[in-house]
Amino acid sequence: MRALLPMAVALMLVGCASSTMEAARGGAPTAQLASQKAPQIVSQCIQFSWQEEATFGVDASGYLQPRKQGGYTVYTREAQAFVDVYPEANGTRVDYYAQSNDSTALRRRAAAATCL
């Protein structure tokens, strides 16, 4: 019974993040990046870089999930920032979305760029 409550809370958070991400995907990405690396390698690197407490402090979070359409999504708590990582003929395309244009969002974008 104790395990059900944390699982329910986690599912609610994923649902909220998912609707926020779908709304953002309706517009243009904040930035588009490209890499010759495989999508799985790029997405794992972004996830780990966003979890770096030395850079992001208490806001360090990075969650990875596969996309139904192929590729991966890496996102932060409440989807403040997220990337969609897609396979392309010459490597990988990364669409970066951020809810704001503050210093944390810019650091997340820079951290994602180091993974290319």
Results as ranks from 00 to 15, higher is better:
residue 96 Y to E: 03
residue 4 L to T: 05
residue 45 C to D: 07
residue 14 V to C: 02
residue 91 G to R: 04
residue 94 V to Y: 01
residue 35 S to V: 06
residue 10 A to S: 09
residue 35 S to G: 10
residue 101 N to H: 11
residue 34 A to P: 00
residue 100 S to L: 12
residue 86 Y to F: 14
residue 22 E to C: 00
residue 32 Q to T: 15
residue 6 P to A: 05
residue 63 Y to T: 14
residue 30 T to G: 06
residue 91 G to W: 06
residue 113 A to I: 03
residue 71 G to H: 08
residue 14 V to T: 09
residue 21 M to V: 11
residue 115 C to P: 06
residue 50 W to V: 01
residue 41 I to S: 10
residue 94 V to H: 01
residue 114 T to Q: 13
residue 86 Y to G: 02
residue 19 S to W: 09
residue 44 Q to L: 14
residue 51 Q to E: 12
residue 94 V to P: 00
residue 63 Y to D: 12
residue 100 S to I: 02
residue 66 P to S: 15
residue 108 R to E: 03
residue 104 T to I: 14
residue 112 A to G: 04
residue 19 S to Q: 11
residue 10 A to P: 00
residue 113 A to W: 04
residue 92 T to W: 02
residue 78 E to N: 11
residue 104 T to L: 15
residue 104 T to F: 13
residue 90 N to G: 06
residue 85 V to T: 10
residue 33 L to C: 05
residue 2 R to P: 10
residue 52 E to C: 03
residue 79 A to R: 01
residue 68 K to T: 12
residue 85 V to R: 07
residue 113 A to L: 10
residue 44 Q to F: 03
residue 83 V to Y: 00
residue 10 A to H: 03
residue 44 Q to E: 14
residue 24 A to R: 10
residue 35 S to Q: 07
residue 48 F to K: 14
residue 15 G to Y: 07
residue 9 V to W: 09
residue 22 E to D: 12
residue 41 I to E: 14
residue 47 Q to C: 05
residue 20 T to N: 05
residue 55 T to M: 06
residue 90 N to C: 00
residue 19 S to M: 09
residue 24 A to P: 03
residue 106 L to Y: 07
residue 22 E to F: 04
residue 51 Q to V: 01
residue 50 W to N: 08
residue 35 S to R: 06
residue 22 E to G: 01
residue 82 F to H: 12
residue 107 R to K: 15
residue 11 L to K: 04
residue 72 Y to T: 03
